[in-house]
Amino acid sequence: MKRRARPQGWLSDVDPTASAIGSTAAVLLTAAIYAGSRGLRNFDAALIGYATATIFLAFGVTYRYVVWVQSPPTRRYLVKGWKAFLSWRNFRRFPTLVPKAVVSNLAFQTFIKERGMGRWAAHQALFWGVVGATLITFPLTFGWIHFRSAAGTESHYEMYIFGIKTVTFDALSWLGWLTFRGLDITAVLVIAGCAYFLWRRFRDREAMTGQHLAHDLMPLIALVAISVTGLLLTFSSALLKGRYYDFLALLHMGTVVLTLVFIPFGKFFHVIQRPASIGVQIYKRTSLEDKGPFHCKRCGAAFETQTYVEDLEETMSELGLGFEGWAEHCPRCKRVERGIAYRAHVKEGF
């Protein structure tokens, strides 16, 4: 069996399907920005760098996602996972399966707790910091949310969502403080999480083994840079009477834009991949109920499910591996059988 030859030239590496779907995503987001900002009337031109980078991000992330789901194992899980998720029968049988998996795997990432409490706490700080900052920043830069000072008041603001007036609040109240300091709070959370992980990357030999500057350290450095420059904006307006604000705003936008453009290519892409674990969980749980467990052909011990082993064999066959039958043996039996064969045919009776 030979390795697949790589196509020559970078253009031949471009996936036309992924390009088309990625471009559609970018166009849809642009249209949503236009419509959501009421024909750009509520769009803040000073934030155009953020919006442009986000449109590129939509293209990049969609492109990579489409390329990713085309590989045989991913495609199979994607189809089977969605089928299991959208099945009414499965919903009736396991009504809490998906909500539980979403809360435990995606929101609170309890599996990281098993790797270490410090890592879990740091990841939670990082996660909620990033989620909060994203929920605040994206609608603002798209012009979907904007604020106006309420007529006839000194410190009251009106919040508009998609051009529709929603709440009026006092900037000096706790709601006002929380609204205008939301990004500062998320920045502190992100810095705390990143600080722990950076410390770990320099001190923990488990983390240091095989780490790469671009893959493992740059994402943390980028998040710290965004958060620190963001906090410096507050520092400038609160304590320096706005001195250096313009320069700091440009610096902050530069760090954000570079990070957004980097997302499809680097470690951040795991944010897009992670929900696949929910699909896998639903697929495994429901296929266990449907066809039951699979039993090792040699020792008879139950492992995985009938459906899982059939699907894995199909994936292996599609990849042209040629030893699909081995998937029907548990890992220990594979090793023992190889030992028996070695003893019988290579070094007799060792």
Binding site: F323, A327, R335
Partner: peptide
């Protein structure tokens, strides 16, 4: 994502 494909596809059981 914990799917175990690698566990059962490895012909050496590693």
């Amino acid at each position: 994502i914990g799917c175990e494909n690698c566990v059962h596809a490895c012909p050496f059981g590693v």
